[in-house]
Structures are given as structure tokens and as C-alpha cells.
């Protein structure tokens, strides 16, 4: 069993690297060096390039499952609103915040299509 240093819940920033004007044109894809597995509704991500690992809670895992390079951010947002009891604007803010964090950590890539 590996000894682990304290964990870090990644901070949210107000700056956005995702262009909100193009949510229907941006698709999200996991980075090639990242492997994920789901356990008990949560997802563990291992970044082979850095040796770091991350955990996603339930909704984070749902979002991650959509990051296959097929769904646009607008598609993912619609799927969340369809499945969860949430105000649309909050779901979008949370989705973009999470995506930006994952992009900043090198776990996700965004592509225009």
C-alpha cells in the first residue's frame, strides 16, 4: 500500500479557458497518458506521465464518461440537466469549472470541431 501525502481538492478559478461562446463546437477528450477506472460510483484517474492520481465524485464521473471526443460541452450539459435535478445555469458553470480544472491538470484536452 503506497504512503500518500495529503490530498488536495483543486481550487476553482474565475478565469475560463473554455470559450463559452462555442460550447456546441468544443468536444472534450481524455489525454492519452490518462487511464481511468470506476469504483463504487467514483472514478480514479491515473496520469502516467506524472505519477499523480485523481478521484472524481459521482457527477464528475458522469462528466468524465462523456469525454470521449464525441460529445460537445453543450451535449454534456444537456445530458446532466436531463438526468439531475439542477438549474441549467448552475450545471453549466459547474461543468465548465470542472472541465477547466481537468484541462489545467493535463487530464483533458479540448478540440474544436
Amino acid at each position: 500500500m503506497a504512503d500518500l501525502a495529503p490530498t488536495t481538492t483543486l481550487s476553482r478559478t474565475t478565469g475560463s479557458s473554455i470559450d463559452r461562446a462555442r460550447l456546441d463546437r468544443i468536444v472534450l477528450r481524455s489525454s492519452p497518458d490518462v487511464q481511468g477506472t470506476m469504483m463504487d460510483g467514483e472514478t480514479v484517474l491515473l496520469d502516467l506521465s506524472t505519477g499523480r492520481y485523481y478521484t472524481l465524485n459521482r457527477l464528475g464521473s458522469v462528466i468524465w464518461e462523456h469525454c470521449t471526443g464525441q460529445s460537445t460541452i453543450a451535449d454534456i450539459h444537456a445530458a446532466i440537466c436531463d438526468r439531475f435535478e439542477v438549474v441549467s445555469s448552475r450545471a453549466l458553470d459547474d461543468l465548465i469549472d470542472l472541465a477547466n480544472e481537468l484541462i489545467r491538470e493535463g487530464l483533458l484536452q479540448q478540440e474544436r470541431r
Binding site: 503506497a2 504512503d3 500518500l4 501525502a5 495529503p6 490530498t7 488536495t8 481538492t9 483543486l10 505519477g51 499523480r52 492520481y53 485523481y54 478521484t55 472524481l56 465524485n57 459521482r58 457527477l59 464528475g60 458522469v62 462528466i63 438526468r83 439531475f84 435535478e85 439542477v86 448552475r90 450545471a91 459547474d94 461543468l95 470542472l98 480544472e101 481537468l102 491538470e105
Partner: peptide
């Protein structure tokens, strides 16, 4: 029939630092 939706909780990612 209205579909019952799941309870929402903010998506969170936690980074773990290995020694």
C-alpha cells in the same frame, strides 16, 4: 409520467500526491 431525476451534487476532482 414524469421521470424522477437524481439529486445534484457539484462535480469535484481531488488530486492525490504520491510520495
Amino acid at each position: 409520467m414524469e421521470q424522477k431525476k437524481e439529486q445534484y451534487a457539484q462535480p469535484v476532482v481531488v488530486k492525490h500526491e504520491l510520495l
